[in-house]
Write a protein that binds this DNA or RNA. Structure first.
Lengths: 215, 215, 215, 215
DNA sequence: CATGAATGAGGATTCATTCAT
DNA sequence: TATGAATGAATCCTCATTCAT
């Protein structure tokens, strides 16, 4: 069933709960990522979602609840994307890392807003959100990190993989920014740069040794 | 001269402008870091600074101005700390890098609030603040790039110094950020982690090779 | 449906937008006229309108917007009142002028607040408000000028119609303003004063000659 | 004795009270006329007066006091200007009126700010100011009006001269505005227009009769 | 289910006014 | 006398949240 609203636009009515929730979450992620948690207004979110404010509250609760729901959904998506990437890789740890990185950057590139909300906004707000985020992040990261731990019993295995993952992510983001200023490079080339840095280290790089993705 | 205010606390009076400005900035950094930019209220800042709100406005302008002033001051402090660290190092590039990283993490460890404001809060708010940050980042990247430039004449390294510097700075930021949520490690330990990652690479690490600071 | 609020007063609820807007404008005109633009507080306006402040903002925007809306509404009302007065008069130009003046002073007498806001407050604030007023004035002057145009073909009169119209409108405004502080006279009496001044001139008046409305 | 202040400007010190008061009143009239009573800030007034705020309070009291002092001074000035104008005229009432008008418009033209404060601002603020103004205005006006009353015992003498004065003033102001759009006219010509309107009236003007200033 | 109407509460900002030197 | 430093008290405005239909 459909109706024309005051502005003449067509607004679908009585959609199933699932669809409505998706609409709202999509809108919320968009607005939260653009404005930040506090500056985002429930008014704007409901407008972008093309739904009335009371419905937003009915479906997803308070602003805090809504934000938490965004984090949960996006974190899950990210996790699944990485899991899919890793699982299609072979056995060699460097190749697994390579696939994990590619999956991760693929996600970040494709869902900028999601990543914004997850990385910037959630950690900027203290308390429950940061916690929620930390939990999710650790699960996701351990997916990629686990492969390193399985690889050997050496010292490396006892590294705090969490910390390394954080460093990796930061390096990747920063490199992505740098990429914006050097568009002549291909995506693969940039990814390879990062792989080189983290796999070979400067120590080897200065000796002219480079890591190569498998053919 | 001192007086007891209504609440019985002692409040210094008629301080020179310079002193008041420092008080205010200190309070602002503390509050912004704990609450985030939007959730921080000028009321709380003025209370923490133990001064009335109108003085905050008289000395440092609007909330935006105040936030920008915080960012500028902390960014300057941080850059000076790093520059000092690097300059006291010897010639070997890895040692220079090591000192730079230690200075960086030392700063972050000592001034958690400063870093929290600089990195998390400033980047969560868009617009002019992000710009201030980008400037600082650019300076940091130049510093690192210059340092790496000296590393070797090898094609592989000198060719991509910029990209690697960007990646390293990003990794450092991100790791520092991660550290905020995992304060159990020492600054030196965290610095060593990053040093190992970028200097040795995972490739060596999984073979049990680690970088060691010179005795 | 009606409810008693905390103070025990009866407050109508869920009125349509149109009605609320009128309530608000009425209250705003009253308060602006009594306190002046700056001294009037949005709090008082919303109280007088018997509505919460956020609704005032939702319906009519900022204080400036609200003031402008008041001016527009009252200016329109006034111009319509005068036009109606003039149009019901016969052909003789003096009689038309007389009816126009009577309508004008009738309006001022009946809607003191409106005039107070229009003339005193709006002109005391500079900028955009004065502009709105100038528009209204220009319309009023044109109306009078057209009327005087019909008066005669004599060179002396038709040549300077514009100037005389401007002077007449100014005199009317000023006299109305004066009347606000001397409410003891009737609207007709004030109108007659002005009619005598502009139609007969002091020269005749000192000779005891007066203009009389037709029986 | 003189000192250079922070900005390097020279500020005279320890001036006699009289001079300081004039400085302050000049500044206050300027600022009140430009901003309006409420929008004018004591800060700006003290800056324009090139004196510190506490001095303003020491010399002329509260903002209300200061405003009242402005009104009093400017009203007195205006009164004296008109008195001087009238007293140099001869006996004929029309000539006296003519001189009075010329003196009045001379003052308004020369001291725009003073007139702004007196006419617009003082009457826009209710209460004590309006009263103060009315008193002053009535005294000043009666100067000009008295001549008409002395002229004859006719009906005209019992006119509310106050009301007529208000009309005159308004007509004059409006004509001055009109003049701005018709700069080809001389000052005398415009003054003569007004004299014609009020002395002859439209009734005579349409018959081609005009008033002429005496040679 | 869906929404236009409504508000309590709180935050940024400014200003008249006064100390303490 | 003269002033930089300081503040209590408003004022405008916005937002998360909820009725009543």
């Amino acid at each position: 069933m459909r109706t024309n609203d005051a502005a003449g636009r067509v607004r679908a009515k009585r959609l199933p709960r699932e669809v409505r929730e998706r609409q709202i979450l999509d809108a919320a992620v968009e607005v939260f990522s653009q404005r930040g948690y506090h500056a985002a207004s429930m008014d704007e979110i409901s407008e972008v979602a093309d739904i009335s404010k009371p419905m937003v509250y009915a479906y997803l609760g308070s602003k805090e609840d809504l934000f938490a729901a965004c984090i949960r959904r996006e974190a899950t998506r990210l996790m699944e994307a990485i899991a899919a990437g890793v699982s299609e890789a072979g056995d060699r740890p460097d190749v697994q890392l390579w696939h994990g990185l590619r999956a991760f950057f693929g996600f970040v590139g494709e869902y900028r807003d999601s990543w914004q909300v997850l990385h910037r906004q959630a950690s900027a707000q203290g308390g429950p959100f940061a916690q929620e985020l930390l939990d999710m992040r650790r699960r996701a990261i351990s997916l990629v990190a686990a492969l390193l731990m399985n690889t050997s019993d050496s010292e490396a295995a006892s590294l705090h993989t969490d910390a390394m993952a954080a460093a990796l992510v930061g390096a990747g983001e920063s490199l992505a920014d740098w990429w914006l200023d050097h568009p002549e490079e291909s995506a693969g080339a940039v990814a390879a740069r990062l792989m080189n840095l983290v796999w070979m280290g400067f120590g080897n790089l200065v000796d002219g040794q480079m890591w190569q993705p498998p053919r």
